[in-house]
Design a protein around this nucleic acid. Structure first.
Lengths: 146, 146
DNA sequence: CAGGATCCCGCGCGATACTG
DNA sequence: CAGTATCGCGCGGGATCCTG
């Protein structure tokens, strides 16, 4: 208990925009902060891809790298670290001669995946309408043609 | 509700795997592209705040700026433009002497808000557990101080 | 093979000033 | 009041090299 957790400056978005009234009626400021964290997690390009890949089962580091074409080592490592920090994935290292490390979705991670899939479902449901809006908007916005 | 339409996400993963390795079994590449768009929208810091604010009803540009403390004109305008492009919000300009413009959530926008609220609910539900993981992880990661 | 450390560039975004 | 145009920096993240 003596060990105090020294303030951990974690990845990005450390803007102190508190001091003003909450903009939204659906959640208060401190809730908003936490929701943002989850939103950042989900909004992150690589996180979702990693989670999606891990949905198929435990996967090794190198297999993850192979399965997610565009990702760099740096981002894979960073993403995995962040996901582990939030309890979304678990890491298991096998003490073998050629090191082997497997990552796997935790229960929490699976739960999160479900929620994300709900968002994906919404996307699919409304893709047509959104596309339609995009085209109309672009047509209106880009009057200068040929 | 216009759900239950093209819920092709998760409806049978095609066996014909293309040469380019798809990272995920839950959706194919082109789906992934679109899901990313929505994810980017939702993952965007300002979008959610704007949507949340608009949930209370039609709001003027300046009121939005006031309601969302940290936002700059640039980002507010940009965010609104993007939301309009996707059919999430609608814009109404009243031809008055002092110009007045109101933004409002569309049906699509309200629908999106619901989905986002689901995510917020998940956040709230699992906040405690996530925080717990964060602390454990940080404690493990920061063994030695100073 | 898993992943830390370093360098560096591109652009996202905030601040400011101007216009209808 | 409701935006647009421009500049500048901060840092997210890709490429590369190194270690256990």
């Amino acid at each position: 208990m003596a060990a105090e957790k020294t303030r951990k400056v974690r990845t990005g978005v450390r803007a102190d925009v508190r001091a003003a009234p909450g903009p939204c009626a659906h959640w208060d400021d401190q809730d908003a902060d936490f929701i943002r964290e989850v939103l950042d997690l989900v909004g992150d390009k690589w996180s979702v891809l990693v989670i999606g890949t891990l949905a198929d089962g435990a996967t090794r580091y190198s297999d993850l790298a192979a399965a997610i074409p565009g990702i760099s080592q740096r981002m894979l490592t960073l993403t995995l670290k962040q996901l582990r920090r939030n309890g979304i994935v678990s890491r298991t290292a096998y003490p073998e001669v050629p090191p082997r490390v497997e990552y796997e979705l935790t229960g929490l991670g699976t739960s999160l995946l479900s929620t994300v899939l709900a968002l994906a479902a919404w996307s699919a449901d409304n893709q047509a309408e959104i596309r339609r809006h995009q085209q109309t908007f672009d047509a209106d916005t880009q009057p200068a043609g040929s």
